[in-house]
Structures are given as C-alpha cells and as structure tokens.
Write a protein that binds this DNA or RNA. Structure first.
Length: 280
DNA sequence: CTCGTCCCCTGGGAGC
DNA sequence: TGCTCCCAGGGGACGA
C-alpha cells in the first residue's frame, strides 16, 4: 500500500494519538519478515514514544528508555507492498492472520499487519540512524526545499534508464512509488519512456513541481481521511479516487482530447499508465 | 557505478 | 465451488 504520502499519513495518525505514550508491551507473532525482526525489539517495553518520523517510505518511531543499552532507539519500519498499521483504543481480543507486531501503550495499541511480508521492522540506536543500511543511501526528500528542477536535472544527467525507473530509484529521490510516478509524469507531460538524461531544464522543473503537488495533495487527502479513522478499523488506505491515470487503462485521458485512451505498458515488470498523446 | 532480471510472499479477481 | 493464471503500492541480490 504505501508510498511517501501514505507513510506520512500513517505517521501523522500515529502522532496524533500516541505521541508521548508509554509502551506497555511489544508482542511479535512472526519474526520472519523481509528481514528478521530483531528479538530485542520487545525490550523497548517500558520506554516512551518520543516522536514519529518518516524518511522515504520508512516509518520511524523514536523511543526513549526501555531495556536496551542505548538511551534512545528508533524502530525503523517499511510496509513493503501490503503492509498496514491499525490503531486500537484497547488491545484487540483476537488478532488477524497477518498481524505480526502488536505495540501496546497507555494511549492505545497499534498493530503492524503485512500479508506478503515484503515489509520489515528493525531497531537501531537513534544516534546511529543515518548509518542504518536501509537509510544510508536514500536520496533527497522530494518535498524538501533542496529538491528543485536544477537538482533533478543534475542527478538525471547521463542516465540511460528511462525517467520512470530513475524516479523510482530511491537513491536519487526518496519515497516515490509506482502510483505517484505515473501521476507526476502525466501532469508534467513527460513520457515514462524518455531517457532520464534527455530531460530539458524546463521539463525537470515542471516534473519537480508535479511531484511536489501530487504528493502534497495525496497527503492532504490522507489527512481528511484521517479525521474519522477512529470510526472504523483505524487502518489507513490509498485514495484511489484522486488518480488521473493509475489503474485507468482504457479510460479517456482526463486532460486532453486525444482519441486514444490511457495505456498500460510494462516497464521492468511494473505497470505504467500514461497518455501517449499528452506525454511526449 | 549503472543497468536489467529475478525473486521474496500472499491474496484477490477474472476466466473457465 | 474450485481450479489456474495474472496482477499487486517495494526493493534487495546478482551478473553483465
């Protein structure tokens, strides 16, 4: 489920409810995820959740205290393709099939569920976080001020891979996934098949603006979904009604009068949706 | 370095 | 109902 906006939404939802919470217990029902969950994660019980953060598609939970040697530790979690996090007021009576980690606090309980187990959860000392193997090579945050057309043009320079693959490369730009890359390329009128190094300065600028806009809109949409998260099961989802091209194969392009329709092609095993007429 | 290809795992939906 | 096949929001390992 998760790209940058979804993780940001989850981060915000967890912050609202669980900032400053005291961890009563951590229960791991299944350790064998993408990478094994470290056994010592349960020793964060007794600690306090200081803050929630996000880097790329990783959710970061900062915990002070607990029974580990470092004073402050960070839970690093990736939701893979199918991961989700659900908040409950109390510990559920029974767990679902793929509920892997249950964190019970004095302010509520959150559950990490991942059917496909492409996700991961790890623990690192907070002061060593930037050295963590999953984080140390991650590129710039696309919503940061430093992410400009000039910056993008620079990192794309000389690259032969197509622009879609380049934007999915987490070393170049952080947090972009298959949905939002399709949406941003559509807005920027850039074909996903273009060589990354062939973009002009103005195309790069428009692409940066498109990425920022589509991500920000998704985060806002997530925020509005968030307001009533307590009503139902508390899980956070995608906001598919907002998409212009993703999953819209065969539908009319919403932005031009071309006679053809949204195409779906395969790039490196992933679906790409775009309008041949608008995106060149 | 950079690029492609394959693979991890489970579930849902389409088609027969 | 029950197969079988295809598809899925990600990214790490590996070889050229």
């Amino acid at each position: 489920m998760p790209e940058l906006p979804e993780i940001e939404t989850i981060k915000n939802g967890l912050s609202q409810k669980l900032n400053g919470a005291l961890i009563k217990s951590i229960k791991v029902r299944r350790y064998d995820m993408r990478f094994p969950i470290p056994q010592n994660i349960i020793k964060l019980a007794g600690g306090k959740i200081v803050s929630f953060d996000r880097r790329a598609k990783y959710l970061l939970i900062n915990v002070s205290g607990g029974q580990l040697s470092s004073k402050e530790n960070t839970i690093i979690s990736h939701l893979g393709m199918s991961g989700r996090i659900t908040i409950f007021d109390t510990v559920p009576d029974e767990f679902e099939k793929h509920d892997h980690v249950i964190v019970e606090t004095d302010k509520g309980t959150f559950v990490y569920n991942d059917a496909r187990r492409f996700g991961m959860m790890d623990v690192a000392a907070s002061d060593m976080l930037t050295q963590h193997k999953s984080l140390k090579n991650i590129g710039i945050e696309p919503l940061s001020d430093g992410f400009t057309g000039a910056y993008l043009l620079d990192v794309l320079g000389g690259r032969k891979s197509n622009i879609k693959q380049a934007l999915l490369n987490q070393k170049l730009v952080a947090g972009i996934g298959n949905i939002y890359v399709c949406e941003a390329l559509f807005r920027a009128k850039v074909s996903p098949l273009r060589a990354a190094g062939s973009l002009s300065g103005s195309e790069a600028s428009l692409l940066v603006e498109s990425l920022k806009n589509v991500l920000n809109e998704a985060i806002e949409s997530g925020g509005s979904t968030l307001r009533d998260y307590k009503k139902s099961d508390g899980s956070f989802g995608y906001f598919q009604h907002k998409f212009a091209v993703y999953g819209k194969e065969g539908e009319k392009c919403p932005n031009c009068n071309c006679k053809s329709s949204i195409k779906r092609i395969n790039q490196s095993g992933r679906s790409t949706f775009y309008c041949k007429n608008k995106q060149v």
